[in-house]
Design a protein around this nucleic acid. Structure first.
Ligand SMILES: [Mn+2]
Ligand SMILES: [Mn+2]
Ligand SMILES: [Zn+2]
Ligand SMILES: [Zn+2]
Lengths: 159, 159
DNA sequence: CTCACTTTCTGGAATGAATCAAGACACCGG
DNA sequence: CCGGTGTCTTGATTCATTCCAGAAAGTGAG
């Protein structure tokens, strides 16, 4: 809901052409932190009409490479994108519903942690994912991953 | 290469029946840290002959649920398993070749980090993934993800 | 030892995210 | 105003993983 010219400047600053799909995708990601590709396609189509899924995938790749958006992928989740970049923040993920929230990094730049023994690796980033349960799920006493429909695998016995 | 009876005890201790596939999968994971499912199937078949991929997937799920193995899934990687459990250690991943090495946790139990602002979540684990480049890749000057064959997407311009 | 119950096998089929493909067209910007 | 970049359309493909279901095998409690 903020000025598109702002986004235009971002794109030009990254030496990227300003196109409708790019601006729309960038806006969608900025307005919906940790949004997944499917939802981006939905949001973008609402705003600018027809956009091919191919275009969205292409745009996301370009924006990610340019560093305008960040791609995150907690285990068990599809790829998600956010426009909050450059501050090396972390995430907390709900084991029950998959909700993601930002967690500020005390250090603010990468790598914000030093490995005791780095096994010789040259480390450029320490990614931290906090796992737990969000307030909603805690209150409702949800337990397992809500994403899975709790269908019982035929080879598995119900507990 | 260690006693199978050791593994049997592990399984029984988790109230799991001792079956050939289970013992074989557990041994494979223990002997090949951070092994992926495909490789597990290979290793298991070498040792005990025919085992269905379905059985391996089932076994891995059971072992993971029982806490005998840990499943890790760094972004851009397929699921990998390890038998080193209970010590809350972390991992360092090579951006070029995907190699994974263990990183001891200074604390040794979860959660080993406290979030500045946990957004109300009840946090039970802080997972840390160090990203960087392994010694081999650094020496050979590899740059991009080696997993991807560097084929140029038709919609993408080479830099 | 026996039997009920669990686990695995077989052989596919389906899923879902992501990528690839390629020609035609649109449109951005120097 | 063009050259070249980006997008469109339509479909196919890949790959890990899960689902399926009946039959066979194997385990362990009693
Ligand atoms: Mn974030
Ligand atoms: Mn490990
Ligand atoms: Zn939740
Ligand atoms: Zn490497």
């Amino acid at each position: 809901m903020i000025g598109g010219s702002e986004l235009e400047r971002l794109l030009r600053g990254a030496a990227l052409r300003v196109t409708r799909p790019r601006v729309a995708v960038l806006a969608a990601v900025r307005d919906h932190p940790h949004i997944d590709t499917e939802s981006i396609i939905g949001v973008v189509r609402e705003r600018v009409g027809a956009v091919s899924h191919q275009a969205v995938y292409d745009v996301l790749r370009v924006l990610t490479t340019a560093g305008l958006v960040r791609r995150i992928q907690p285990a068990g989740s599809v790829a998600r994108y956010e426009a909050r970049v450059g501050d090396n923040h972390h995430h907390v993920v709900c084991r029950s519903c998959g909700a993601i929230a930002d967690v500020d990094c005390a250090v603010g730049f990468a790598p914000c942690l030093t490995a005791a023994d780095d096994a010789g690796y040259t480390i450029d980033e320490a990614e931290v994912v906090y796992w737990g349960q969000c307030t909603d799920c805690a209150r409702q006493g949800r337990t397992g991953p809500a994403a899975e429909q709790r269908t019982v695998h035929s080879h598995e016995q119900p507990t």
